[in-house]
């Protein structure tokens, strides 16, 4: 085998490896969601975040507009403090926007949903959302449901 042939084959091999990497990065991993663009930070406080995690999506109207970047527990207000990086192009959220922790599907991932308000002023980087709704915890709902059932049956008797 001539050395030219060997070099060509090795070149193809290396190119195939790099192509495979980009294929995996683009179509299988979340590289496309690593937006290279600018982001700004919004915080929100929740009583209970359920199963929310760092890097969970933040969406408005079903469109992903950012990611959760940090989750901390504030031991003064006894609340969970969630920091989110929102893409800079989505900068027109009114200051009375509500944030709630939702679940995709019945047992799916949890994410933060934004519900825009009606104010004229817009949220700036570092602002805190006051209107929040905590995660629905299935055990609590079932507990409440059973409790109310018991109440109902008690009244009926």
């Amino acid at each position: 085998m001539t050395s030219r042939k060997i070099e060509i084959l090795v070149g193809l091999f290396v190119a195939a490896g790099i192509a495979a990497f980009f294929m995996l990065a683009m179509s299988v991993s979340n590289m496309s969601s690593y937006s290279t663009g600018e982001t700004y930070e919004i915080k929100a406080r929740f009583d209970n975040i359920g199963g929310l995690k760092v890097r969970s999506p933040v969406s408005a109207g079903g469109v992903t507009i950012g990611r959760v970047s940090n989750i901390q527990y504030n031991s003064e207000s006894y609340e969970a403090e969630v920091s989110m990086q929102i893409e800079a192009k989505y900068d027109k959220f009114p200051i009375d926007t509500a944030a709630s922790i939702l679940t995709s599907g019945l047992l799916g991932e949890q994410f933060v949903g934004f519900e825009p308000g009606a104010e004229e002023e817009f949220l700036q980087g570092g602002d805190v959302i006051d209107l929040t709704q905590s995660a629905l915890v299935l055990e609590q709902i079932i507990g409440q449901f059973l409790y109310s059932m018991a109440d109902d049956s008690g009244e009926a008797e």
Binding site: V28, S29, N30, S33
Partner: peptide, 15 residues
Amino acid sequence: FWSQPQNKVDLHLDL
């Protein structure tokens, strides 16, 4: 098939 990995597979952590 493609969208779920794109949401769940992390470039840094996994790849």
